[in-house]
Structures are given as C-alpha cells and as structure tokens.
C-alpha cells in the first residue's frame, strides 16, 4: 500500500452494521467491518468474495446508496462522508457511477433506452438543446457497441437481450463522464458467450477513457483477467490483497487458497482435489472476536479465535490478515504457491 500512487478513491476502515429491525432486538448484522483499500486512477481493482462477504454492500456504501456506520471514503483527497454529511452531492453522484448485477432489474421497464440515457445527461447538464442531447445519446450507445443507435434508443428494455441491457447500464454510467465506475457483478447474470465482451468493454474504457473501475465479483478467474489488483473479502472483512496474478499464483490467506481450489478449472486437467475446509460462512450477527475464518481454517491456532489479525505486508503490494504471517516474514506454509494446479 504505497503512498506515492495517485489514488482516486481511498477507503479507510469502512464499516456498516445493520440493525436487526426488531424493537427490542439490539443485535446488529456486521455486513462490512473495517474495510480498507485503495483505487488508483485508471486502474481496475477487484473485490472478490462469496455471497454474504459484504462486497456488494461495500460498493453501495461507496456510492452512498446506503450510509456507512463509520469509516472514511476519501475521494480525490477529501473524505466525502465529512464534507457531504447529508448525502452525496450531485457532483459526487456524477463522478461515481454504478453498474448493477441484474441487467433485467436495473433498467426501468416503463422507459425507453433513450430515456435511461437522457436523464443523467439532463440532470448533470452535460448537453444543451434537443439536438445535442440526441446526438450524445447516440454517441454513447455507439461507444458501448449498441448500434444502430437511433433504433436502440427507441426500444424498451424487454426488447434487448441481457448482454445488450448490461451495455445500456454502462452507457448510462458513462453518460455523466464519471471518474469511477463501481461495477457490481456486471457479468455474473449474463450468458457465458457474452461475458467476455462486457469485460473487454471495461478494459477498453479503463485504458482509453481514463476511468477507474471497482470490479466486484465472485469469479476469481475473471478478476485476474481484467484487474490489476484483487482484494479478497470474507464475512464482511478484507482478508487479503495482492496484484491479481500474484494472488492467483501465490495466495497467502487460507481462505483465498480454499476459494482458488474450489474453482472448476479444466485447463489444469482433471485432478482430485480435496477442499481443505468444510462448513460455511459464519453468521454476521454480532460475531465473536477473532478471525471470522477460524471455524473453517485448516491451520487454526488458539490466537485465531481471540484476536482479529492485523494486515501484514508480505511482498510489494501484497498484504494478508492472518496470524500465520504474524511477523511479516516468510510463509510457514511452504507449498502455498503450489496449492493451485
């Protein structure tokens, strides 16, 4: 976590506790706990994790669809939670855009594609005049590969396929000329053959348009495909972060290794693989102290059940939260790099 990089977003100790809802029930769901990571300008950074890991909640906290319990969201050097306590400013809304997982749910069935893209342009006063508005809508649809644009603009969402709808989602996000796009599982509900097209679109946008992406996924292979840096989340906490290639080839945290061993991977040939851990993600309701992975961890020690390990840097840009790496020194697990294929 070097300081000299140009960070567009710097997230520090982000935490969200949801109340259970009952009048007397004071318990809280610890959906996101002490999440810290950075998004350098024009890079793609991934949050990978299973359902319930808090990765989507993290994106919604950053986009301020929900308000954090505590923590800092530093955008261009300013903590927006402090400077805009009453909710996101229009400027922040314009700069931070979001693309959603469900291409069927993220477009309003009552409006045309054109309407979906016009609205942000009008709200943020990006164009003036009907002609300019129409031209810009067409231009955006062309950018995301949805030509012929005037035909597409007149269509309703149900007339498009899932992949096309997801492209509309990107066109909409792009319309306000944002600096950051938070892409929450943008391909997981798309058919396999069109996923790559959407991932490539993201790559192209990051390279050509100077955009930064936070890519949220449960698919660690796609994380490696498009992102520079990958962070692993487990039970609301961030457990490891590394350059994407390093993470796949030299995973440090036992959970990361479990995750990697579970991915079907025909490229590695058919192999018998014993998943090392059993059980499932623990309850997030008022969790006990210690490492959340302790109950499933094959290398669990006494200290794991009592104290939450701190982040330890084990290589350049590679850190892990695990007591096995207490001294920041060598991994006590010599075969770490070989655990995958």
């Amino acid at each position: 976590m070097s300081e000299q990089r140009d960070l567009v977003l710097d997230i520090k100790n982000l935490t969200k506790h949801f109340p259970m809802g009952g009048m007397r029930d004071t318990r809280k769901v610890h959906a996101v706990e002490d999440v810290t990571f950075a998004l350098p300008r024009t890079e793609i950074v991934t949050l990978v994790g299973e359902s319930g890991s808090g990765k989507s909640t993290t994106a919604r906290l950053i986009s301020r669809l929900i308000e954090p319990t505590s923590g800092e969201v530093i955008y261009n050097g300013k903590d927006v939670l402090k400077t805009q306590p009453g909710g996101a400013s229009l400027e922040y809304r314009g700069d931070i855009q979001m693309v959603f997982q469900d291409p069927f749910g993220s477009l309003n069935p009552a409006h045309t594609i054109g309407y979906h893209i016009e609205r942000p342009l009008l709200i943020h006063k990006k164009v003036s005049g009907r002609k300019a508005l129409k031209d810009r809508v067409h231009e955006l649809l062309d950018t995301v590969g949805l030509g012929p644009a005037d035909e597409t603009a007149a269509k309703f969402p149900y007339e498009l396929s899932g992949g096309q709808r997801q492209r509309v989602g990107f066109a909409r996000a792009l319309s306000v000329e944002p600096k950051v796009i938070l892409a929450d599982e943008p391909v997981s509900m798309l058919d396999v053959s069109i996923r790559v097209g959407v991932l490539n679109l993201m790559k192209r946008l990051a390279e050509d348009s100077g955009l930064s992406f936070l890519y949220i996924t449960h698919d660690i292979a796609s994380a490696r495909y498009i992102s520079d840096h990958t962070n692993v989340m487990y039970a609301g906490r961030m457990v490891e972060g590394a350059p994407s290639d390093t993470l796949v080839h030299e995973p440090a945290h036992p959970y990361t290794r479990l995750l990697l061993s579970a991915v079907p991977n025909p490229h590695a040939g058919l192999r018998t693989q014993e998943t090392q851990a059993r059980g499932e993600i623990p309850s997030l309701i008022d969790p006990p102290p210690g490492c959340p992975f302790a109950a499933r961890c094959p290398h669990v020690m006494d200290v794991c059940r009592q104290i939450m390990p701190g982040a330890v840097t084990i290589a350049p840009h590679h850190w892990v939260r695990c007591h096995l790496y207490g001294d920041g020194g060598e991994s006590p697990l010599p075969n770490a790099a070989n655990s995958v294929g």
Binding site: L107, R119, H124, R172, S175, V176
Partner: peptide, 10 residues
C-alpha cells in the same frame, strides 16, 4: 436496481 440506478445518477 432501477431505483438504485436512478439514485446514483442523481
């Protein structure tokens, strides 16, 4: 999500 989407565009 389309409501969330509308919120995020302002």
């Amino acid at each position: 999500d389309f409501v969330a989407s509308a919120v995020t565009v302002g």
